[in-house]
Amino acid sequence: MRSAFPAFLVLLGGIGCAGYVKAETGAPPDAMAWLKKIAAASRQVNYAGTFVYQHGNQSETSRIAHLVNAGGESERLETLDGPPREIIRNNDNVTCYLPETKTVVIEKRVARRFPVALPEQVSDIADNYVIRKGGQGRVAGYNCQMIVLEPRDNLRYGHTFCVELTTGLPLRARVFSDKNELVESFAFTQLTLGNGVSKAMLKSRYAAKSKAWRVDKTALEQAETNADTGWVVKNQPAGFNKLTEMRRSIAGRPVQVSHIVYSDGLAAVSIFIEPMPESPPPAGATYQGAVNIYVKTQADKMVTVVGETPARTVKQVAESLSFRE
């Protein structure tokens, strides 16, 4: 009976999906509206609070504050356990304070958001996930609406969001494997919304103290150009389309790296191809929360595939990568 059980589940999944896909090719408009609301909220809502990030057996607690005003968007993130770290973001400028090593890392992060409002992305998500409204829940003292994105196959993870009713801010985001195990979760444990967020909450704890610290600006001079890299994925995972392809600089790399991104509307898989470094990392699969990483060598190149998808998806991409003659 035990050994037969997984087979039943596979069968069950197959039957369930076949019926479901036919029944609702388009997601319910209400659930879709919620998804758009979530996408906008993370950038537009003022909030400050404490949240827990859980992955595997580990959990980490951080404090965050996010404020939007005439000057744009600012954000402050501070870890509350383990080595202290503080990240301050003002629009595209990111400063990371590492007090233990007395280091300041300055970076520029181009805001490359992919608003869920784009019609083609909406249809991509609906093609690959069954989107539906769940019940109502309560997180950090706020009532929230559950939104469920159930994958239509095992090449992507399932997602649930519990979304604050008035602002649309996700109070809890969970990622599930195809075996319905929790892969990672973000959840607020304490939260202030709207006018309760003050500028003082975004003030750096270390900016004044760090005058004499070492400043690392290597990540600042980044260049990128859209280009045909010559690399192709022969066995593209179903539902994933190419989002972009470029040659770009990456901090710590002496030469430019090829970067190709595929997405199914929600999850993305990145392929990085670089000349073989002097000490290449061990080949094989690793992961970080919901992000699976697959490293392999190909001819004189090192290939790194990174995606917030199951390991099989990044592996399929890595194994079917080839250089077009």
Binding site: A39, S42, Q58, L77, R109, A173, F186, A268, Q288, E308
Partner: peptide, 26 residues
């Protein structure tokens, strides 16, 4: 660096808002 570079393009990360830093800090 690859994690960060990747997550700039990830729609699900954009949905979660704070994720890119959290994962790499971790």
């Amino acid at each position: 660096e690859y994690l960060m570079a990747h997550q700039e393009f990830s729609p699900s990360t954009a949905l979660q808002g704070v994720a890119p830093y959290v994962r790499t800090v971790s």
